[in-house]
Design a protein around this nucleic acid. Sequence first.
DNA 1: TCCTCCTATTTTGGATCCAATATTGAAAAT
DNA 2: ATTTTCAATATTGGATCCAAAATAGGAGGA
Lengths: 234, 234
Amino acid sequence: MSPDEARRRPPTAQQFVLAELRRAITTGRLRPGAPIRQDALAEELQVSRVPLREALKTLQGEGLVTYEAHRGYFVEMLSLDDLREVYRIRELLEEEAVRRAVAVLADADLDRLEAAQAEVERASAAGDVLAMATANRAFHMTLFECAGMPRLVRLIRTLWDSTDAYRSMYYGDSGNRERVVKEHRATLDALRRRAADEAVATLNVHRDHAVAELESVLDDGAPRRERAGEPPLG
Amino acid sequence: MSPDEARRRPPTAQQFVLAELRRAITTGRLRPGAPIRQDALAEELQVSRVPLREALKTLQGEGLVTYEAHRGYFVEMLSLDDLREVYRIRELLEEEAVRRAVAVLADADLDRLEAAQAEVERASAAGDVLAMATANRAFHMTLFECAGMPRLVRLIRTLWDSTDAYRSMYYGDSGNRERVVKEHRATLDALRRRAADEAVATLNVHRDHAVAELESVLDDGAPRRERAGEPPLG
DNA sequence: TCCTCCTATTTTGGATCCAATATTGAAAAT
DNA sequence: ATTTTCAATATTGGATCCAAAATAGGAGGA
């Protein structure tokens, strides 16, 4: 079996379940605050509760779900303050990653960033929200990985994961999509000139805008903890 | 049952196992690079493999162990570069925590810090290495928690956990213990005067010395991945 | 009507058993 | 002697079953 195929369908049930859960949370299929009923979900996904619980433990570690002994797992419900905290931490860590990346950036790295950006622009033009989110993420992670600090990148990735559910709506607006394209171009320009301060600044603008957008969407009240009624997990 | 009792013996086997595993890794009982044999460990701890595996998943999320499908879990083996990366990330996050803490520091917080420091000094004088590590950690976490950023503190705590195994040796040296006591006093002094820059600086010195010490201990070669021979887990 | 207590039900936690995969070691071929 | 193949073994992955805890609902009492 080729490595590609192996990645397509994970070799273990827990990895399959993990991917499904991420998708469910990201797309809002499982809503913030909702309890996760293991029996129902396991049946839905055609696995037993054992791999499901292991996947949930992973998500707990990433902060996507919370856990209470004998009460179970709940989809993490982030308040506005929580979101601001996550974005502030991202700012700290991503600045470090970008500075280190700029210091060692090779032409081949820039080529890969250009390719990632091309995909972002394609998705933006097509209005493909899911592809847009994926491509945007790939662009940023490609940059961060140039820093050669795998643990730092892992932390940043986890922070992105933890707010995926709240960020998915962002790309629905075509104005936001165009803005992202422009901001990426500004970042790329700074990177080509190895202007670290400028690259950090453009990314901060990029991030702050996302936060501001989130705030305006959410400030009519924090999401409520739900106890039932979410649709099944097709 | 009192809350205290409830905390003494965790209500679930996975939490018990998690604590035991942490201790085993921290004390070097499970050595970096060693594979974790689930059957043997489960029998050792008198539980089945199910809660053990959930505990391992938690540790995987924290970076204390690595996981490969169908091959199992291994105690994470940190290279010198890895350690430096962890400490650099800590520097970034802890600076933020300290600055936020100083901005809102109340007298009651200072009292708690004094109490924590008293415990550090007691342990230092007694030469109690384990108590020293615990007290030092409590001192720092008490400070960080004043920042009112629970996610940030959680990340920092995880980073501390991930290097526990390597830091345990540090307090064996009485010179190191005395140095820690002095550095804490300098930090406390800065905090009392709400001198954020100074507090950050003293903590950076504190941390950098630990890194330097680790480097001198480890630079005769990275630890090897072991495959067998670790003593049983009393 | 409201509160308390107790029981029935639901849900999670964990043990055991079996299946799937990886590893080891020996035998056979080059 | 070295490499390859294949079977035997060890180890992990997962399903099912049972136990323990929490939740929900109703009966009884104030």
